[in-house]
Design a protein around this nucleic acid. Structure first.
Length: 272
DNA sequence: CCCGGAACCTGAAGGC
DNA sequence: TGCCTTCAGGTTCCGG
């Protein structure tokens, strides 16, 4: 499931192929992927534009265009961007294809059709309310401490809230909470300053590690070259229900928390 | 503002 | 073999 490390990997590994290149065509095997504007305007606004930069904010990808607009892509739960030669045909799950002037195409593959593409005047429309980037300066221990204070939902639900911190999803939330020794059901207000400090460090550490290992390919996510990432090989709890805790060998517990599969170690992450 | 649940989707995997 | 259920979960919308 694409979260910050998977999206960052996608940006890094697509950019060298398309940055500075001109978009020569668009194909939409599933038109429903385009959220806005209407299709005719979408196509005409895109074709002929040069990509002048590629950025990420949270889980959102932006292709900055020479005319001033931005193409916004969101992989949601099952999307990948794949770099292909122009001649490559659409696969069964290819929902959109962007063709460039260097014999390169980007295929948006998305089995479950949750993915979204928008052509916008600027990123603000989708990033306006997002919380800070966890790997940048705005995400300080103080910020975490202060903003957790008034939250009542379970800690995992809070760090999944994109308006609280941008980029964390269910897998890296489980990993961060394990690394910090905090039960996912704990109330934010009950965390000690020491625990908040550990959580702050853990969030940054698991995301950095995820990027270093080029993202996690737990089911449908692939890197732009079609290869799997390696991050899931380093997961300690995420997607490991029933398996022994890597620290204490206790079988990992599985619960549904706010509809999200959640794995944790009942011994290393006790519910006080 | 905050919370929790439903809805959106479809393939894979497991049980019987 | 085949049918049924469960699981995967990012975001938005809605009611409380």
């Amino acid at each position: 499931m694409p979260e910050l490390p998977e999206v960052e990997t996608t940006v890094r590994e697509t950019a060298p192929h398309i940055n500075g290149r001109r978009i020569t065509g668009v194909a939409l095997p599933w038109e429903g992927i385009v959220r806005e504007p209407a299709l005719a305007e979408f196509r005409s606004g895109l074709i002929g534009e040069t990509v002048t930069g590629i950025t990420r904010r949270g889980k959102y990808i932006f292709w900055h265009l020479s005319g001033g607009k931005v193409l916004n892509l969101h992989l949601k739960m099952s999307g990948s961007l794949l770099v292909k030669p122009s001649s490559a045909e659409a696969g069964k799950f290819t929902r959109a294809i962007f063709y460039f002037d260097n014999d390169t195409a980007i295929h948006f593959r998305d089995p479950r059709k949750f993915g979204v593409i928008r052509l916008l005047d600027g990123p603000e429309k989708v990033t306006g309310r997002l919380g800070p980037e966890p790997l940048e300066g705005g995400f300080t221990r103080k910020f975490l401490e202060r903003s957790l204070a008034r939250r009542k939902a379970p800690i995992k639900a809070v760090i999944l809230d994109q308006n609280f911190i941008a980029g964390i999803g269910s897998m890296y939330a489980d990993e961060a909470l394990f690394a910090a020794g905090i039960n996912p059901q704990r109330r934010p207000g009950s965390l000690t300053p020491e625990e908040v400090k550990r959580l702050h460090r853990a969030i940054r550490q698991v995301l950095r590690s995820g990027i270093e290992h080029m993202g996690a390919s737990t089911s449908t996510y692939f890197r732009p070259g079609g290869e799997a990432g390696f991050a899931h090989h380093h997961f300690k709890v995420a997607h490991r229900r029933g398996k022994p805790c890597p620290v204490c060998d206790t079988p990992l517990e599985y619960i549904k928390l706010r509809g999200r599969g959640t794995c944790f170690c009942p011994r290393c992450q006790p519910l006080k």
